[in-house]
Amino acid sequence: MTLLWGTYPAAGLGTPAGLGEGIWAQAGTGVGGAAQVLDLPAPSFLLAHPRLPLAYAASELPASTLTVLDVSRPASPRIVASLSTGGADACHLLLAPDARTLYVSHYSSGDLAVVRLGEDGLPVDDAPAQSFSHAGSGPNEDRQEGPHAHSAVLAPGGGHLLVCDLGTDELRRYRILEDGLLESDGIAATFPPGAGPRHAAVRGHLIYVTCELDHVLRTLRWDAASATAQVVAETPATLAPARSAEPQDAHVALVTAESRRHGGDLVLVSVRGADVISVFDVAPEGELTYRGAFDAGHWPRYFAVVGDRLLVGEERGHRVRAYALADVVGLPPERGIGDIAQLPCAVAEVTSPACVIAV
């Protein structure tokens, strides 16, 4: 197994792309050095095909592109297809369960694009089959001047696709048709003004949404009959104080009891500025209890559990970290409010890491 890291330009998000950034490879344990193996402009989000030796890269550009990589030799990935996604600053990819449809979220334009894939995992068209725009804004004039589709997730039950729109404080709803194409179906949930929903994780009938702008992790209960979700609980994403900047929530993920091999489920949240990952225990019925936070380096944008490791990219620290999942699971409750624990980790240099996958 090999880890592939997608990166931003060396000067960071929002700076000119195509100046040497690209894909980096590292041994699958996350221990040991990493090396750049492909030049690609701002591949900020990567996704692996579940069955084929392919990976998909979203280049976060004013005119975004989707690139398909042959990763049968991970140390030398090869571009096999590319197409324009039709939107600005693609920042998230989601594959349908049958891997025949790819959903692309665009931050700056707010569009959601739908790309059809063949049995070989390659796009069947030279452009997205569908593109859904949106309208609206929020009270944060700097960040909510218009719609900002930040990520997509399958709703509980799998009948709808939900898009976290940071700009309009909404969960946009799309009905999934038999062929994987979508039908716009209104709004599933509305958040408090200025919340800025960014990423979501689903557990049963509950949806955990991390909100970047007001720094709150919200639990929503999905109602299948109405295809709507209601906020039922709220908690700060961390109690750790600001260290490098004002806290901004980034990514949320569920660690199941099966993947951690004992105990109950966990929810993890990365918080930039505080520069930590927060650990929440999940009660059987889904209630979250904050356990504590541990240092995750400078600006931990994205993380992923791969095998028995937790992998974290320090976007502004230009490093990647690999923690033993057992250490994360065993994090003791904080002794004082806002304490930041230190966990052992392996560290490697990667310029502006934004996302990681295992192939």
Results as ranks from 00 to 15, higher is better:
G12Y: 04
R319I: 09
E349F: 13
V271F: 02
G204Y: 04
V269K: 00
A189S: 14
L288I: 02
T2P: 01
Y56L: 04
P197S: 10
T7A: 11
P123V: 12
R78A: 14
T238Q: 08
F45A: 11
E287L: 04
A245H: 11
I340W: 14
A96M: 09
V71S: 04
G14S: 10
S151E: 13
P139A: 10
D295F: 15
G336R: 10
L343T: 07
V359R: 01
D327A: 09
H134M: 03
A227D: 12
Y103T: 13
G87N: 03
E212F: 04
G167I: 05
A155R: 06
P147H: 10
S105R: 00
A242C: 04
G336F: 12
V305K: 07
L83T: 08
D165E: 08
D275N: 11
L206A: 13
H215N: 15
P192N: 06
S184H: 13
P74M: 01
Y302N: 13
R51T: 13
D70H: 03
A58P: 06
E21S: 02
T7P: 09
T289I: 08
P247Y: 09
A358G: 12
S244C: 06
V255R: 01
P300F: 13
P16E: 07
L311H: 09
V68W: 08
V328C: 10
T7F: 00
P9L: 01
E178W: 14
V306I: 14
E119S: 07
G286T: 08
E141C: 08
C355W: 12
T256I: 04
A324G: 11
A296Y: 06
P43H: 05
D142C: 02
G14K: 00
E212A: 12
D165W: 05
Y174C: 02
G159P: 01
G158P: 09
T256Q: 13
V115C: 13
G6K: 00
L166D: 10
R309L: 05
S352A: 15
V232F: 14
V252H: 08
R175P: 00
V271M: 03
A25P: 12
E212S: 13
E170K: 12
L94G: 05
E285P: 00
R203D: 15
T7E: 05
G158V: 12
V306Q: 09
L112D: 05
L154D: 05
S109W: 00
P197N: 09
E334N: 03
C355F: 07
C355D: 15
H215Q: 09
S151A: 14
D214L: 07
A189W: 08
L162Q: 08
Y8L: 08
A99T: 10
V359Y: 04
G18V: 06
G118W: 13
A274M: 07
A227W: 01
